[in-house]
Design a protein around this nucleic acid. Structure first.
Lengths: 164, 164
DNA sequence: TATTAATATTACGATTTCGAACGGTTCGAT
DNA sequence: ATCGAACCGTTCGAAATCGTAATATTAATA
């Protein structure tokens, strides 16, 4: 969806797509192979997104050539285990700062999608989306209260469900 | 973001991206020029997305060549006012049916983005995800009550926010 | 042991969209 | 009369990603 809309530009002026950003992010947590990253995304998104093999491998190579990641070790079957470099960490931190705009974009796109689909539950979607955006924007010290409010909401919905 | 992920395949086997789908949708409501559609999107998404001119004009031409839209009239300055054809309406309806998966995709991507951005609100994400799932699964006749519960939640969060 | 499945990667054409440059036509302001 | 802005569209290289096919190497299963 819209090639550049979700891309971020790092401090070197290089545009980075979602997958690049995710790769840096996950390699910062722990060294991984291409296949592992691929399967991880598939799992985390509940089969909603499986990055194409044709994308992830050339991208890993590109990021390595750029010095943002490196091969930590090699395993069987031609396996390369990548890890992030310190340069990569800098780039990632810089990108994260710029990703703050995503929140607003998400809200807008969700609204547009609802309209396109002619969804009859527009009000529900809009409410949930708004709830999401406020919940995420509340500061850390309000987290307990936030969770409490959401929990109550969930309980109420479950009750309503059980009255079915 | 992920070129094909949000694309839908119409009954003719042709892949349609977001912009195509939006064009069909909005021309169904009312005939419009390319520039009008462009500005409409920009407005509706609060400047979050302005489709590229390099995209929309060739796309309109393509859709016209395919018989999904036609030129209704022409105005000054080379302006073409497009309207949807009956064939286009069929395609749009077919596409809408397939867009039902977007809902789940959206939630998943929202979660992934939060993780990438280092948002420290995992529990919040999980709660909101659960809330979404229940809210959407409740039957239509419970809609009013659902809305009520969600509304209350939103109000509570807004109050919490205003206590900042 | 042979076959199937899973892991691991490469190659490549296709797709949607961007971004930028370019050009033309009104229209309102000066 | 001139200018700047807005409307209106075209061209084109670049970018991120998809989808698919192919290949190789284990590991699991029959």
């Amino acid at each position: 969806m819209m090639t550049g809309t979700w891309s971020l530009t790092d401090k070197k002026g290089k545009q980075r797509g979602i997958l690049s950003i995710y790769i840096l992010h996950t390699l910062k947590e722990k060294p991984k192979s291409g296949y592992e990253i691929l399967m991880e995304i598939k799992e985390k998104t509940e089969d909603t997104w499986t990055p194409s093999k044709g994308t992830i491998y050339p991208l890993l190579k590109q990021l390595k050539d750029e010095g943002l990641i490196k091969i930590k070790e090699q395993g069987k079957r031609g396996k390369n285990i990548f890890t992030i470099t310190s340069e990569g960490k800098k780039i990632l931190n810089n990108l994260r700062k710029q990703g703050k705009d995503w929140r607003e974009k998400f809200l807008q796109f969700r609204k547009l999608f609802s309209e396109i689909l002619g969804e009859k539950t527009v009000n529900i979607i809009n409410l949930i989306t708004e709830i999401s955006e406020i919940a995420f924007s509340l500061p850390e010290e309000k987290k307990e209260e936030t969770l409490g409010i959401l929990d109550r909401c969930l309980i109420d919905l479950k009750k309503l469900n059980n009255k079915a």
